[in-house]
């Protein structure tokens, strides 16, 4: 199987799901004729026509409303909110309506919608085009948050998100779009973490771009005789506590590496769960996240801001000394 880029995996997943189910529609800003500002939706408009794939005004309130309203009336919409930072505008429909409908209808009507959004720092986009919005949505019951790290997962989990009957936020890290890997046509499972590297000294839990930094760090730490087990959460909500707990039973140490502000992040939720359910196994547990400041623009400032491999290595060394 020839490797494909992450952005192609996203495109292929949409293509296959549009082909598989007439109820699936896809719309957003510049996603049709232009094929997406990150070139993730090339050719879909031409293939499926303006009835199913279309460009919209720059109107995130209307976009989210159209997604919610059509999802509870028989369609399975996928929309693109161009940058995750713009999700603030779509939040009302998502938080106040879409995620509550299953509850209000007493489990009669679900809301099968997907919001794809480009997230993350490292692209020199500055404070308001680089954020990781996951933690804004962690406290919203009824919502799923998917955060893939590889082309294979991007494809399999986006297909799963489109087939899921609940509202799903699907995050695509902008620094992963060029990453290549194999991706088949399988439909993944939401809510399942993956153990990507076995280790015995410390469990490192992360997601998205952090997975690649973590694997690089684990490689280097191996030379120090520090054995790191790397877990890719893949879905941030609901969190696969079981996989993390099983690992911590073995390693007795937990570090969560999160791209996102330390305060209120999903890393804190992972720590809380493992502490509640596995305190007896733990010798140490901590978080490595970004500072509680906005994301800087200047390359040296932004690079230092993010928890890359260097920081992960030095942090784990210091902690395990």
């Amino acid at each position: 199987m020839a490797p494909i880029a992450f952005r192609t995996a996203v495109r292929d997943a949409l293509d296959e799901e549009l082909a598989a189910d007439e109820r699936v529609i896809f719309f957003g800003e510049d996603v049709g004729l232009a094929g997406g500002v990150f070139a993730t939706t090339t050719g879909l408009y031409e293939k499926y026509g303006a009835e199913r794939v279309f460009d919209t005004p720059i109107s995130e309130l209307a976009l989210a409303g159209a997604a919610f309203g059509s999802a509870v009336n028989g369609l399975r919409p996928v929309i693109e909110i161009m940058f995750g930072d713009f999700l603030t505008l779509a939040m009302d429909m998502l938080v106040n309506q879409a995620s509550k409908y299953w509850f209000l209808t007493q489990e009669q009507i679900s809301v099968p919608l997907v919001i794809r959004s480009v997230v993350g720092a490292g692209g020199r986009f500055g404070a308001i085009h680089s954020q990781m919005p996951a933690s804004w949505f962690m406290g919203v019951p009824g919502l799923k948050i998917v955060a893939p790290s590889t082309p294979a997962d991007a494809k399999a989990l986006l297909k799963a998100a489109v087939r899921d009957d609940n509202p799903v936020l699907f995050f695509e890290h902008k620094r992963l779009y060029g990453l290549e890997g194999e991706a088949n046509g399988e439909v993944g499972r939401l809510g399942e973490a993956a153990v990507l590297r076995d280790g015995s000294d410390v469990t490192l839990v992360t997601a998205m771009k952090g997975v690649h930094d973590a694997l690089e760090a684990a490689e280097r730490l191996e030379q120090d005789q520090i054995s790191v087990e790397v877990i890719d959460l893949r879905t941030l909500r609901p969190i696969d506590t079981e996989t993390v707990l099983a690992s911590v039973r073995k390693t007795s140490r937990l570090v969560v590496v999160e791209e996102g502000p330390l305060t209120g992040g999903w890393g804190g939720e992972v720590l809380a769960r493992i502490t509640e359910q596995g305190l007896g196994y733990l010798d140490d547990a901590w978080r490595l996240a970004t500072p509680n400041t906005p994301i800087p623009y200047s390359p040296p400032l932004e690079d230092a801001f993010l928890p890359g491999p260097e920081q992960i290595v030095s942090d784990i060394r210091r902690r395990l000394r």
Binding site: G69, S70, V72, G74
Partner: peptide, 14 residues
């Protein structure tokens, strides 16, 4: 208004 807009989008097709 937003919810009805979405409903209209779906009903047009259904």
């Amino acid at each position: 208004i937003a919810a009805a807009t979405g409903a209209a989008l779906a009903l047009k097709r259904t």
